[in-house]
């Protein structure tokens, strides 16, 4: 099939061919150097490769991987190399150590207070479950009423305890403490 025969201006063919075949542009003198720089900028590993002798182990790995169709994708080795390089650098910098989390001092103090409080509360609750109901859980009138029950021991001491408790109704005086105090006072008589 001779397309040129169909041309309306066959006289132009030689001129056109001359224009088409021309290569008027010549590469800059530093084209290759700039290309090297660009490769180096794009790939740090590539940058090192331009300046260092090629590692024969690397070449062998490349050949082995490239021989398998599954790993023959153009970017496979590049990504693998990048990943291996990254892991290698992590291994060289990593040393066995305990993992420590930065903890503010106030948090340590808060935890200690909380633990102490929890222990105290647990102990109190346990005791309150075994002992008589606390005075603090009742109103002042209840306190007086409960102290009234203690008249069998000593009306005067019971009166003192009731007055002391009623001076500050918000103060928590557990029944255990009241009993202990009363026992102590009674024993001192």
């Amino acid at each position: 099939m001779h397309f040129e025969k169909d041309s309306p201006n066959e006289a132009l063919d030689p001129q056109l061919d001359r224009l088409l075949s021309r290569k008027p542009v010549v590469a800059s003198n530093d084209f290759l150097a700039r290309l090297h720089d660009r490769l180096a900028a794009e790939d740090a590993k590539g940058a090192a490769a331009w300046k260092q002798p090629v590692d024969s182990v690397d070449v062998r790995i490349d050949q082995l991987l490239a021989s398998k169709p599954a790993t023959a994708r153009p970017d496979f080795l590049a990504r693998l190399r990048q990943r291996l390089g990254r892991e290698e650098s992590q291994e060289t910098t990593a040393t066995p150590r305990l993992i420590r989390f930065p903890t503010p001092r106030w948090a340590v103090a808060a935890v200690a207070v909380f633990a102490l409080g929890l222990a105290t509360w647990t102990q109190i609750e346990r005791n309150s479950g075994q002992e008589t109901p606390s005075l603090a859980s009742h109103s002042a009138a209840d306190a007086v009423l409960s102290v009234d029950n203690a008249h069998t021991y000593d009306p005067e001491i019971t009166q003192i305890l009731a007055l002391a408790q009623n001076l500050d109704p918000n103060q928590e005086l557990r029944s255990l403490d009241a009993d202990r105090l009363q026992s102590f006072l009674l024993s001192s008589y």
Binding site: P24, A27, L32, V54, V59, D62
Partner: peptide, 25 residues
């Protein structure tokens, strides 16, 4: 180049830089 000879890459570039640039130009 596949075997690690980086000079081979330079040979390719020097041989094809002008044809390629003119094609794009």
């Amino acid at each position: 180049l596949q075997a690690g000879d980086l000079k081979a890459f330079d040979e390719i570039v020097l041989r094809w830089q002008n044809p390629l640039i003119n094609y794009f130009h």
